[in-house]
Amino acid sequence: MNRWIIALFCFCLCCTSCVKDDYVYQVNNEVITPPNAVKTKLKTNEQYIAILYTNLFQKPMSVNNLIAASNVIQSIGDKEFAHDQIVGNFMNSPEVLLPSDEEMREDLVGFIELCYNRFYTRHPSALEMQHFLDYIEGNADVTPEMVYYSFATSDEYLYY
């Protein structure tokens, strides 16, 4: 009988014990992405083309075209050259979705963020942001297409 009383007493203690409040730090919630590229796996030809096409056209590539394009990459020894040619080919298409020059220069920070997010799936570091701000502001002839082109043919874009 005593055991039951002690058990009931303990249960009541648990129910009425104090509960620690959640701390509220009063900062905004943030989606955390790596500050720098931690990418070690090289994309296959198919992965590269599929991602590139989606990044530039904002829609998936057909399977037949995907195979044809990856065959073309395979048929050329210098893969970086092959990528260059294919990006150059895509840039000739009127269907590539590019912001206008005005849109880019109106919100340069947003544009640079967009490029790093879209092509590298990460945020730019402060150094990277500043470099591109200075570069684009200092070169009136730089277009969004040229920036996209440089991202799409860069080394980091070949990795995931």
Binding site: N36, A37, V38, K39, T40, L42, S125, L127, E128, H131, Y135, S150, F151, S154, D155, E156, Y159
Partner: peptide
């Protein structure tokens, strides 16, 4: 510039 940034962590 992009490639040089990647050299520090890439292969």
């Amino acid at each position: 510039f992009l490639n040089k940034s990647f050299i520090t962590s890439g292969n």
